[in-house]
Structure formats: C-alpha cells, structure tokens
Write a protein that binds this DNA or RNA. Structure first.
Lengths: 224, 224
DNA sequence: ATACATTGTTGACAGTGACTACTTAAGGGC
DNA sequence: GCCCTTAAGTAGTCACTGTCAACAATGTAT
C-alpha cells in the first residue's frame, strides 16, 4: 500500500509500521541490540521520524512489552481449550505454551520482564501482565474446587507455578537448558515435580506425566 | 596502598581495581547502564586504560559474571552448614540464600544469566555455573538416599528447583513480587509447593514450612 | 485560497565502544 | 653509571546511538 515508487512524504500509518518492524527485529534476536535508528532504517523512514509517534525509545519498548503480554495471554488461552483433559494435563499444556512463547520470542519476552522499561510505564503494563497471571489463577481455583489440587493458599501455588515457568523460560532463552526446543525433557520433568506438589494426594496415584516417567527420558542439563 | 597523593603512573593493580569498581557499579543498579568509560572514570584512570587489561567490554563482563557465580556458590555453601535440620528446611534455606543473593546483587545476577555475554566466554563460565548447580544436586541426592525425597529422576527435580528459584529471583529483581525483601511470603509459599512436590509421601505428614501455613500469612502478588 | 496543525526530513549535539598513535615509567643487560 | 626494550597510561579518531531543534511537505478547517 505504502510501496509507492517515490516514497510519499506522509507515510500513512507509521506508528503501526514502526511497531511491527520493531517486533520483527525483536523476533530475530541475533544478539541484536535494539536501535531506534535501525527501526527507522528498516521502516524506510528518516532516523527521527519515530519521535513523532513515540516520545522516546523507552515508550516504544513499553508499547512492545504490552503487546507482548497481550499475545502471551492469547497464546495461553488458545492452548487450554481442551478442558476435557485432566487438570494436570491442562497445567502442563499451559506451561508448555508459556515457555514456547518465551523461546519463540526471546527478546520480546526479556523485554516484557525488564524492570527498567516496566517502571516507566507503570499501570498499563501491570494490567496486561495481571491478565496473564489470571489465566494461571483460574486453573488453580478450578482445580482446588474440583479437589484435584491440594487445598493450600492459592497465592503460594500461583507463585510456584509462575516462578517455575518464568524461570524455565529464562533458562531456555539463555540457552542453559538442553538445546531441544520446548516440550523437551527438562521442562516436562520440572513440571512433573511441580504437579506433584500441586496435586492432591488422591490424584497423585495416577502415573506421572508421560515424558518424565522413565529415567532414561530425562536428559541431563547442558550448559553450552 | 595505591592511594598515593600524585597518582602513580603505574597503577600497581589496575586490573583488580577495575573489577572491584565495576562490581560496585553493578551493585548500585540505578537503572545504570554499564559503561567502560564510567568504570575508568571512577577508577580515576583514563578511558582507555582498562583495555590494557581486558580485550574488550565483553571480556570484563564475562569476568564479572564468573566472579558472580563463584560468590553465589559461596553464599549457598555458607547457608547450608546446619545439616542437622530436616532436608526440607535445608532446601528452603538454600533457596532463600539463592534468592537473597539475586536481590542483593540484581545487576550482577542478571549479567550472570545474560546469554550474550555467556556465549562469548563459553566453557569457563559453565564450570562456575555448574559448581552452583552441584550444590543443589548434592542436596537432592542426599535426600533421595535418605528417603525423604521422592524417588524420581534427579534431573527433573533439579530442573524444578533451579527453575523455580531462578524464576523467583528474576521476578523479585524486576520488582514483580511483593516489596518485602527475600524470605517474605511469596517465596516461602512457592517453596512450600515445591517441597511438597519433592518430598516423599511419608515426610509430607509433617506440617508445611511455617510461613506458608496459614492463608493469612501469604501476601498476594503486587505488580508495581 | 489561506492559515494552521500534523507528519516527515535534515542537521546538530553529547555520549559511547573500539581502536590507534603517542608518551612516560620501570626494569634488565652491560 | 648508561641505554634500550617493554609495559602502562594518555589523547585523539571513528562510527554509531538517542535526542532535539529547525525546516519542509502535506492535509485540513475556515
């Protein structure tokens, strides 16, 4: 649309173009260091043009982070429609989706959780992040109501779930887990332990989730 | 020693001075962005002097990261001498020490786990990091041998422990947990869930660790 | 049509990391 | 004692960044 032979002076929708270009760059993550000028360059626009839409670099990053939380929530919601499965499978499915999002958008995920930027935005970022957190809380509440999850303070269980999943995601992003992608052994093994901690005693009679069952299926860690 | 009134031409031990200055800066973490020139400035030395001791900025950062892993391992080792306690207490003690290290040295901890830098160093960093990991593995092995920890593939349990503790640390650093410092509710609550996942059924008869017992003691999360 | 607000461009500034040429101090062989 | 090699520190360049101010092109309301 804006591929006019002579670039028009007014770009039409530069704000959106800048955001999408930036998201593309974030997805590449070739040890890339995010640069406003590079964004402008790729968007085919002068180096200061983005300043007409974002007061500064931090504002753009904050916007990207919010979009990231939105997409993460969408990913999690999309991953859990098969509510017919057991709760333990539901939890592992959500957890896998979470880690997958992080490893597929490493730079974006890191940005979402970088304190500097978040501080600048304040409230709005929190709403989006809380929406993600709610997905987890909802599953736990349902599990406790159904009796398949231990009756414990739900905040503690949520802390364990969130902390574990966040930690595994960061480790995976930083390449500290086995090179195989998400869904591979270390994550499932860790989830198995988590689920055993969450599960009520009676549900634990059931066999542990599959990929973590036999000792041979759990790969050791691999620092690159 | 090198506090001579007229700065001596040869600094004596600039390498060490640079490292300690950098560690100081890392400890401050005022949204500070680490700059070689600032290090030189604080060390009272010209902006290119550090290049006589480190080939480039990444090399200095790598050195700092290695020191960080060493100190983390020391912290963990120092935190666990009371082996007379129950294993579950031992685990929570180590975990608290781990998170405390992270929150007390936020920038250093983040640096230790930043992929870019680690990639540059390669092997040496891994040795140090593995030494930290070994502290965790040792406790788990001991627990399995003593029967107080579930007989499961130890890598999975280690993944759970490491992932959880790393995740909680990062969340705390980024200010996403309740403002109270380490040892506060969310961490203990999460650890309680973890311990229930690790513990063998018979040991779980014992009451959960104290601060996560009553629902009232577990604070909710707090996005700033 | 004309004034105005919006959007994009250009040029400039200070600050950064990498790098190089220069200068000074320290120590060893004679 | 002297000279010379080498290590350590300094100054300055280069390319790049984020940011800002001035300017130009465009669209819009009157």
């Amino acid at each position: 649309m804006q591929d006019a032979p002579n670039r028009p002076y007014h770009h039409g929708d530069l704000r959106r173009t800048v955001i999408e270009t930036a998201l593309d760059m974030l997805r590449e993550e070739k040890g890339w260091q995010f640069t406003l000028r590079e964004v402008a360059r790729r968007a085919g626009v002068s180096h200061a043009a983005p300043y007409k839409h974002f007061p500064d670099k931090a504002a753009l990053l904050a916007e990207l982070a919010m979009i990231g939380f939105d997409r993460l929530r969408e990913s999690l919601s999309a991953a859990k429609p098969t509510a017919s499965n057991s709760l333990r499978e539901e939890i592992t499915t959500i957890a896998r989706a979470y880690v997958a999002f992080g490893t597929e958008n490493p730079a974006l995920y890191r940005l979402m959780y970088s304190a500097e930027e978040g501080q600048a935005v304040g409230i709005h970022l929190n709403e989006r992040a809380l929406a993600v957190f709610d997905v987890l809380l909802e599953v736990l509440r349902r599990g406790q109501a159904a009796g398949s999850i231990r009756k414990r303070p739900i905040e503690g269980q949520a802390a364990a779930g969130w902390g574990l999943v966040h930690g595994m995601t960061m480790l995976a992003i930083d390449g500290l887990l086995v090179p195989e992608k998400v869904g591979s052994a270390p994550l499932d093994a860790a989830l198995s332990t988590l689920v055993e901690g969450l599960g009520s005693p009676e549900t634990l009679r059931a066999p542990a989730i599959r990929s973590a069952r036999g000792p041979g299926r759990v790969k050791t860690f691999c620092f690159r």
